[in-house]
């Protein structure tokens, strides 16, 4: 599936929603306008366009929620921000505030490939077991111990690839046509709902098929092994899957 590009400001909104949810669990448009220092009207507009792009669930008087795609996107934006800031502060030893501001601007434009390499570079330096990398004035980082460093590069690959499975898919259960099967990649629901689903067998790597939608379009019925389970659209949208 092709990644849709968001404008810089929409990315900021998404990031803000994510941060507020993490902090307070519930997001109200007012919180967003306070955080980003913009008017309530522009928040409403932005929320609408995020909803059109299926990144959030938004209807008036209901709490705003991130869809699984939105959640992943927000995490990705945040990760870019944090990676850049870490790179500036830890590798280039830049002052924290400047690093943060610059990261804020760069995060929207930096190509994925450069970002991934920066990530590798940071982790490489941070994880090097012998701590043999040192900042040397005028020539930057140098590895002063060129031997016995096999382990650090091994460990590195693992950490970098850890999240890639979750990133590979941007589909949720709701994107699967009725009658088709898919494999569960990730559940992003809140605690007790998630536990209940796990008890019913909906776990990572489970094969699930979409059976039908209720007459009024909600809930959705899915089949796992031999049992059919009905759940709400709102929750199904938070189950990331890949086509089986």
């Amino acid at each position: 599936m092709k990644e849709e590009h968001l404008t810089q400001s929409l990315e900021d909104y998404l990031e803000a929603i994510y941060m507020i949810i993490k902090d307070k669990k519930v997001v109200k448009p007012k919180d967003i306008s306070l955080m980003l220092n913009v008017s309530q009207a522009s928040v409403t507009g932005a929320l609408r366009s995020l909803a059109v792009k299926k990144l959030i669930l938004y209807s008036p008087y209901e709490p705003i929620e991130l869809t699984s795609i939105g959640l992943r996107k927000a995490r990705e934006i945040l990760r870019r921000h944090e990676l850049l800031r870490t790179f500036f502060t830890k590798v280039l030893l830049i002052d924290h505030q400047i690093a943060d501001e610059t990261a804020c601007k760069m995060e929207h434009v930096i190509p994925k490939v450069i970002l991934e390499r920066l990530a590798k570079y940071i982790e490489y330096i941070e994880n090097c077991e012998n701590k043999s990398f040192e900042w040397i004035e005028k020539s930057g980082y140098k590895c002063i111990d060129r031997e016995g460093c096999e382990e650090c590069s091994m460990g590195l690959d693992n950490t970098v690839t850890k999240d890639s499975d979750a990133c590979e898919s941007s589909l949720s259960l709701l994107d699967i046509p009725v009658g088709k099967s898919c494999r569960v990649v990730e559940l992003n629901l809140d605690g007790s709902t998630q536990k209940r689903l796990v008890d019913m067998g909906i776990i990572k790597d489970a094969i699930v098929s979409v059976e039908r939608y209720a007459p009024l379009g909600d809930p959705i019925e899915i089949k796992i092994n031999n049992s059919c389970i009905a759940l709400r659209i709102k929750d199904a949208g938070k189950i990331s899957v890949v086509l089986a």
């Binding site: 709902t193 019913m200 059919c228 389970i229 009905a230 759940l231 709400r232 709102k234 929750d235």
Partner: peptide, 10 residues
Amino acid sequence: ARTFIMEMPP
């Protein structure tokens, strides 16, 4: 409201 998750028995 708690969300709705229910098995549909055959």
